[in-house]
Amino acid sequence: MLRDAGTLTGRCVRLSARQVDAVITALALPVMLMLVFVYFFGGAIDTGTRYVTYVVPGVLALCAGFGAATTAVSVSQDMKDGIIDRLRSMDVSGTAMLTGHVLASAVRNTVATAVVFGVAFLIGFRPGAGAAGWLAAGAVLIAYILALSWLSAAVGLLVRSPEAAGGFTFFVMFLPYPSSAFVPIETMPGWLHGFSEHQPATPVIESLRELLLGQPAGATAWQALAWCGGIVAASVPAAAALFRRRTRG
């Protein structure tokens, strides 16, 4: 099972690398957003700190989320192309297939967020984290990627076409906006506060911000990990059940 998952992870990573336009989009979109927000809008946004320092954790989460959500498209494409049937005839388990997609997503998005981070550093982001802070921030980011990748895998099995799965990526991409990613939640209308404060992207972004800037993360990091754990706990069995339903008969 582990060997199968490793092989299929390699396959998915290779497929991703061959889709040049998708790779460019996954990298260019967050970088462009970061540059636009920092240079064009940042001068008009007061966050009590340099805007680049405030916005980078939000962009990292957006990049990770958008990249992870594309797992829905790749899973849906595999279902449509009939690859799944070929693999099942070779006695490869469904769990290994889905795990391959999820781990490939983790690899892909770790690289993408590293690139975004590199650009952030070039435009003036200066994290003040120690070794423990870096490790903790990395753990939160990877947990977020894995959670959204498993959720995306389930969505990819739920929808009937890769185009419909593509719609999910846009939903996930918009999730960080009504959070503390780009502006403080206090500046939003009162009726938005409830959603913005209690949606999964907010604790992830807040904990990344605190950990990278060398501040005590406190309960926020645990909240972020709880969200990620909850999403994984719901998505893995859902994906397994959907996979069985789609491949039955």
Binding site: A44, I45, Y177, T187
Partner: peptide, 19 residues
């Protein structure tokens, strides 16, 4: 439409104060 709602409700408070 989505962009309008985003800039009006989500980012509008901070941007309005900045302007």
């Amino acid at each position: 439409v989505v962009t309008l709602l985003l800039f009006t409700y989500v980012l509008g408070g901070a941007l309005g104060d900045g302007i």
